[in-house]
Amino acid sequence: MEAVLSVKETKMDGKMESVLSVKDLNVVFSGFKALSGVSLDVYDGEIVTIIGPNGAGKSTLLDAIVSKSPVFSGHIYYHGKDITNNSPHAIARMGIGRKFQNPNVYNELTVFDNILLALKGTHGILASIAAKLTKAKKGKIFDVLSRTGLVDQAFEQVSSLSHGQKQWVEIAMVLAQDPSIVLLDEPTAGMTADETYMTGEIIKSISKSHSVVVIEHDMEFVKQIAERIVVLHQGKVLAEGSVEEVQSNPKVIEVYLGHETIKAAA
């Protein structure tokens, strides 16, 4: 817990205001406590990496933030505003973008159309009918595509892409939303080592202009991108701190005892 305090204190000392603040969050699935009393602050422009064994509640935390899963008790504040259990589309419009664990993209559409769909701005019916594909929009789409290395695939149908490329398409979609906070659920799942490294670089570049929360298993990857790590275990925050702090935390070691990834990383 000391580690938690120290990180929070330094952030507070820097007089930073949290972009996203989760307070004492409880999520219950038919009697099962998926999250119990989770609190987390995400500050402007930082990368928070969430790790933890399977079933720790990592995805559930992101689901609760974007209102995919209902919050039982506790609160979620976005720029100080309580957004707990708001509708998913309202939360998305406020500026919270989410990438799902399995690439959740539109296979029957082209890469370009996927991005166009995600582009910030035209969410109303009349606006969508009247929407013109302006130069500015095209520019923005190709900017996002070049950041994710998808320019050559722009007009290909997403179903024809590799698994790793689909992951990038979804990251590109989240970027096109231009959210102030980006939530990425295992963005490197199913990627080759090269693809994983490139994804790490993409995430680092994203964090220059956005706050990022990443769920990740691969410790090598975590080391590449991590600034601050939050360890979840059985629905609770077990530890919080830098890579070194977390890896030397006895509680974390206990939980991960025999778990190969953390051993290898340590």
Partner: peptide
Amino acid sequence: ENEKRIAFLGYD
């Protein structure tokens, strides 16, 4: 194709 996903892009 997937009505759940598009809500998270901000569409009602």
